[in-house]
Amino acid sequence: MAEKTIRRVAVGFGGDERSLDALALGIALARSAGARLDLILVIRQDSAFKQEYPPVGSVVGIIAEQAQQWIAEAEAVIPPEIRHHSHIRPAGSIAEGLVSAVQELDSDVLVTGSGIGFGRIMTHPAVTALLHSSPVPVALAPAGYRANTQITDVMAAVSAAHPDHQVTRSGESWAGQLGAALTFVTFEDKESGPARHDAGKGPDADAGTASAEPIKHILATGRTLRHAVGTVDWPQGGILLIGSSPLARRRHIFLGMTAARVLSHLPIPMVLLPRDPDTSAPAAR
């Protein structure tokens, strides 16, 4: 398999409402994949070029103490059967700290809150930065997401033009590991022209998925992407996998235009996948 197995789920945690959404999604993913959960709280340190005046000394200690409380509250929510570990670490920015943490911990997916799902993407600069630089898949929990015990459905967004995209393979791999049903979704808006894709001939995938039935393929069309997203009956326990823009550096993620527009109206979590190291090569089986 070219796809990595999900062994370590990292949650970027901050003690706010959106962080609770992220924690809920992290728990659901870790439970479904049988993975270990890492809570990461990054404490931002001032750069030397941000000098307060008159000098007050370092407030990092006070914030770290507060952070321990937030972490303790979060740990109280995690069900006992899920292995977990918490990390508080300093960094120049939240995104920078999360990226270095997931690299060091060898995490397979990074979960953050986002406030998505109500026609807007949250404005937190850390999330924006992550969506354009993370080296591992980033899972965004919509606002108000609360733990559904299991991930029941993996929806993979595949493009009509490139049916053999890496998302196809990743979808199979994720569905297999999470024990969830796989569905392909193709978004099309009228503005980008008529669909050239025949929904009946979706990417074939039969090896190793949870379901023996042929994979469902939904063609979501609408006047705009927003309407297209609205036509789909998103399952409660679903997550949507979506690929990075071709602008992404290899092995990094970069939120594309379509993904961004889908994201802002999506009621279920979205997982943005990094660009495959060699997208042209066929999947190694």
Binding site: D46, A48, F49, G57, E75, S86, I88, R89, P90, G92
Partner: peptide
Amino acid sequence: MREPRSTDIQTPDRHTHSKGLSIGSIGALG
């Protein structure tokens, strides 16, 4: 098997401190 519950607090590199960047890495001009 449960991991230890204690929170791991990372100590930064020697040259990062309360202000992230130390004066040495900013240089006299900075």
